[in-house]
């Protein structure tokens, strides 16, 4: 019995090893995931792109031949796009826009909220959206902060809270953990068991953290000089798995 189990285990190992050596981008059931700083995002058979002024929608049901569908003019200095729960959260240097994907080929501006001038990626979970504001030479403004918005009604997002930070970049959510990249000031881990009240629990130093993707139990961190992988089977206690630097 034991030998059978072992050989089965061995065969499984060989199979997984074989899969891992496939070519880049081999089709998998996994539809992929980007970070919070992205200007590209794919939702189902549509791809959404933000340039500095517009949100554009493409039909990518045949991925090799995208078909332009529609565009929405949103204002100035648009920077990031984040899909959540049938909506697109669009970050610009002057505010947060929420576009409905009720018709995925034709996103419609549903709500917006203005904030002080800064660079600002967005993530959302439940009825709460988290936005980081980063001030600086390029971004303008003087405020570095984590902003918490109630988006239960996307037509009227409400600011709930603002927490001062050093110079934040991207952010991500997994379960009751909110990860905020504060550049060289570390990766901040907030407990968001109470969604509207992030509570700073831990901080990981040692890298210039720019963005994160929580994905299938692993937190992938974008660093200024590479990537780092953390096990987040316990989301609020990331455990370093490896780094790939330079």
């Amino acid at each position: 019995m034991r030998t059978i189990l072992f050989s089965l285990f061995g065969a499984l190992l060989l199979m997984t090893a074989g899969c891992s050596k496939n070519n880049a981008g081999t089709p998998t059931p996994d539809s992929g995931k980007g970070g919070s700083l992205a200007r590209f995002t794919i939702v189902g058979n549509y791809m959404y792109v933000v340039n500095s002024k517009q949100l554009k929608a493409y039909d990518v049901s045949t991925p090799g031949a995208p078909v332009f569908k529609n565009e929405v003019s949103l204002g100035w200095d648009i920077e990031t796009i984040f899909p959540y729960d049938g909506n697109l959260f669009v970050g610009s240097s002057t505010g947060l826009y929420i576009c409905s994907l009720a018709d995925p080929a034709s996103p419609k501006l549903a709500g917006q909220v203005q904030h002080l001038r800064a660079c600002d990626p967005v993530v959302a979970t439940g009825n709460t959206a988290y936005v980081t504001l980063r001030a600086g030479t390029g971004c303008g403004g003087t405020q570095n902060a984590l902003m918490v918005y109630d988006v239960a009604d996307i037509r009227v997002p409400r600011m709930l809270r603002s927490i001062a930070l050093s110079g934040p970049y991207g952010l991500g959510v997994s379960g009751t953990a909110l990860y905020v990249c504060d550049g060289i000031n570390g990766l901040l881990i907030y407990d968001i068991s109470t969604r509207e009240q992030p509570n700073l629990e831990d901080r990981i130093y040692g890298h210039d953290f720019r963005d994160v993707i929580p994905h299938r139990g692993v937190l992938i961190a974008q660093l200024a000089n590479g990537v780092a992988f953390y096990d987040i089977s316990r989301p609020r206690q990331p455990a370093l798995l490896s780094t790939l630097l330079h």
């Binding site: 995931k33 200024a224 590479g226």
Partner: peptide, 18 residues
């Protein structure tokens, strides 16, 4: 080649693109 000015990332399956 070395990662000198690391930018945005995208993950799909076991592959990561930076």
């Amino acid at each position: 080649r070395p990662i000198v000015n690391g930018g945005k990332i995208f993950v799909i399956g076991d592959k990561l693109f930076q």
